[in-house]
Lab assay of single mutants.
Amino acid sequence: QAKEDFKKMMEEAKFNPRATFSEFAAKHAKDSRFKAIEKMKDREALFNEF
């Protein structure tokens, strides 16, 4: 479920497709859906799949 929420957050964010993961992470670090994925490498993997 956390992965689905994370993907939904990325869809809602409508970020620049050229944005890096660190830019995305800095902007969304306080979002509970971002925090729900415990490991940063897992967050980055989901970001890269998107």
Rank of each mutant, 00 (worst) to 15 (best):
Q1N: 12
Q1I: 01
A2Q: 13
A2P: 07
A2H: 15
A2Y: 09
A2V: 14
K3E: 12
K3H: 09
K3V: 12
E4S: 07
E4M: 04
E4F: 07
D5T: 04
D5E: 08
D5Y: 03
F6E: 01
F6H: 02
F6C: 02
F6G: 01
K7W: 08
K7I: 15
K7A: 04
K8A: 10
K8N: 07
K8H: 08
M9H: 02
M9Y: 00
M9T: 02
M10Q: 04
M10H: 05
M10L: 15
E11F: 08
E12M: 05
E12G: 07
E12P: 02
E12L: 01
A13F: 13
A13K: 13
A13H: 07
K14Q: 13
K14H: 12
N16V: 06
P17S: 09
P17A: 13
P17K: 13
P17H: 10
P17R: 08
R18P: 15
R18H: 10
R18N: 15
R18Q: 14
R18S: 15
A19R: 07
A19T: 15
A19E: 15
A19F: 11
A19G: 15
T20V: 05
T20W: 00
F21G: 03
F21C: 02
S22I: 07
E23G: 03
E23H: 03
E23L: 01
E23P: 01
E23S: 05
F24V: 04
A25Q: 09
A25N: 05
A26S: 11
A26D: 13
A26Y: 08
A26G: 07
K27Y: 10
K27I: 14
H28Y: 13
A29H: 09
A29M: 11
K30D: 15
K30G: 14
K30S: 14
D31V: 00
S32V: 11
S32K: 14
S32L: 09
S32Y: 09
K35Y: 06
K35V: 12
A36S: 08
A36P: 01
A36E: 05
I37Y: 03
I37Q: 01
I37R: 01
I37H: 01
E38S: 10
E38V: 09
K39L: 09
K39W: 02
K39N: 13
M40K: 06
M40Q: 12
M40A: 09
K41D: 15
K41H: 06
K41V: 12
K41E: 15
D42H: 03
D42T: 07
D42L: 02
R43A: 12
R43L: 04
E44G: 01
E44D: 01
E44F: 02
A45M: 14
A45E: 13
L46I: 10
L46A: 08
F47T: 04
F47A: 05
F47E: 05
N48D: 15
E49Q: 11
E49K: 09
E49G: 06
E49S: 09
E49Y: 05
F50V: 09
F50Q: 08
